[in-house]
Design a protein around this nucleic acid. Structure first.
Lengths: 149, 149
DNA sequence: TGGTGTCGTGCTATAGAATAATGCTACACT
DNA sequence: AGTGTAGCATTATTCTATAGCACGACACCA
């Protein structure tokens, strides 16, 4: 993730927030940028360490609140299986359910979208009388690059 | 989960271990039984508290090692999104990928199986040159019972 | 029957992840 | 300027998970 493209992302995010009337405060922007600049997933405390470099007063709650906000806006996703966070590059129209491919070798995270997949899961749930509110789909394995080595 | 059916499960698990030459030790059995008797998901430290009643020397590592073993045998599944563990009732033939429906209201966990679903995920991964080793599919929402209330 | 290696365990400590509770502050709206 | 909501700082604490090391049990083979 280059600096310029993270600036672009930031601008987009600012637009989205403005439209929704959400307050994109300084801390939230800082955390957003840290995530945008970071290739792949980052742990909350890693982020905290980075944030502390520019804001010495930062504490765990600082990070978690920011991440909470960013998640709600759909800017970042939490990866439950590794307790880490990753920037979402499709936001704006980002209510979509998320499916993640996580490379255990290089740490790369690929976000994919499949309505079919979502439908399949929902219909299975339906058959059980179950109503889905939130779904977590995370596949671990080896990415293309690592496969070819 | 009644006592008798957990005994039945235990017997089945013992069979499986014998066949594979895996050592189903006392600690592992105790944890297995605790899980079998527990309806729904349990946290590791909850389990630890229960285990301590029959084995005062038990420590976190005791539980985690046992859970690790039981997971590898396919007897229990970890629910990544809530950091908890749940007994699998299909073992024996339990190499199957797991899909879980987790009721956020009553805590009930339903395990479902769909080869189609698995195939859909794999083909999507394939399209990205990604090889899946392990998959996590967890849907949160409301179960049939809670929906009808 | 004793030697040897592997696997399991006990134990201590510590790392890592997340939230609770409280009171203060900044900002938007009127 | 007044008021309410949302955000924030701070401290402490809870919950989750693993590292590292020494000891013991057991299987296997000679």
């Amino acid at each position: 993730m280059t600096a310029s493209s993270s600036e672009t992302l930031l601008a987009q995010a600012q637009q989205v927030c403005k439209k929704k009337g959400a307050r994109f405060t300084k801390v939230r922007e800082q955390v957003f940028l840290l995530l945008a600049k970071h290739e792949g997933a980052v742990g909350a405390y890693d982020l905290l360490a980075q944030l502390k470099k520019i804001d010495t007063a930062a504490k765990p709650a600082t990070i978690y609140r920011a991440l909470d906000f960013l998640s709600k806006q759909g800017f970042v996703h939490k990866i439950e299986s590794i307790n880490a966070f990753v920037m979402c590059h499709h936001f704006g129209d980002c209510d979509h359910p998320v499916q993640l491919l996580i490379c255990d070798q290089c740490g790369h995270v690929e976000e994919i979208q499949s309505n079919n997949f979502d439908l399949a899961l929902r219909s299975m749930a339906d058959a059980n009388g179950f109503t889905i509110i939130h779904q977590i789909v995370e596949a671990h394995g080896h990415c293309r690059t690592c496969n070819n080595q």
